[in-house]
Design a protein around this nucleic acid. Structure first.
Lengths: 131, 131
DNA sequence: CTGAATCCTATGCGATACTG
DNA sequence: CAGTATCGCATAGGATTCAG
């Protein structure tokens, strides 16, 4: 059974509860990590645990504000672990939880698709721009 | 090689061009379809071609404005095909392109993960709320 | 029926300054 | 070092109205 057919079948199920965001796992997930930074930070942490400032350097154009906020959400959802070493100055290390590592699987699928079909998407855009 | 390690390795490569959104396929893709509606509409269309108003009913809480706009982006990127039947009143049918059907694969991976681990995520949130 | 146009509000997010 | 607090802008996106 092709993936898009199975996906379609799932959609039909979601419709039964009117895609209520509280109960629909997919909408629920997308509302949390379908933002600008979450997936990128998960990818960054996949390369290994990192301290706050190291993460900030790894993703140059994120602000401290959004870095803090996004990490908090990921921690709340159990994808990221936050470890505080009480020292002076303080040190905080972030890492993937087992759940976070598991999520890296589907995320990697998305990443691979993006890399494989990037040229096709760019070509499609160019065609539309021409018209 | 575990998925999260491979993902981490890819992240290290992206860093070399400083994750420039124009050249990084992943950021490029996420900027377009990492919004509130794109993936949901792709799932809806996976169940088969649909007319504008049918899509609007299938996803009850999307506004016509965002429906139009999101479909345009998906069409521009080559994921969705727009077919106009010139009649009175006019009829417009949207469907997945082969590229769109292909994208359903990784998207399905994400969906499955969300369904499988929804309970764990909710449990993690409950723990954080308690603390 | 399928949009386009306009208006308005909410909020995502960066910049900056401050704290333990 | 690792944040928090406050501000302000830009954008997302809903509601409504108009048009072909």
């Amino acid at each position: 059974m092709p993936a898009h057919q199975e996906l379609g079948a799932k959609f039909l199920e979601w419709q039964r509860y009117e895609l209520d965001a509280e109960r629909c796992p997919v909408r629920n997930l997308l509302d949390r990590i379908g933002d600008r930074w979450s997936m990128l930070l998960l990818a960054a942490l996949s390369a290994g645990p990192k301290r706050f400032s190291a993460l900030n350097r790894a993703v140059p154009d994120i602000s401290k504000r959004m870095l803090t906020q996004t990490l908090r959400t990921l921690e709340t959802d159990g994808l990221v672990h936050r470890e505080v070493t009480p020292s002076v100055p303080p040190s905080v290390t972030y890492s993937l939880t087992p759940l976070g590592e598991d999520f890296a699987g589907p995320l990697l699928g998305l990443v691979r698709w993006a890399e494989t079909h990037f040229a096709e998407v760019m070509a499609a855009r160019a065609r539309m721009d021409a018209a």
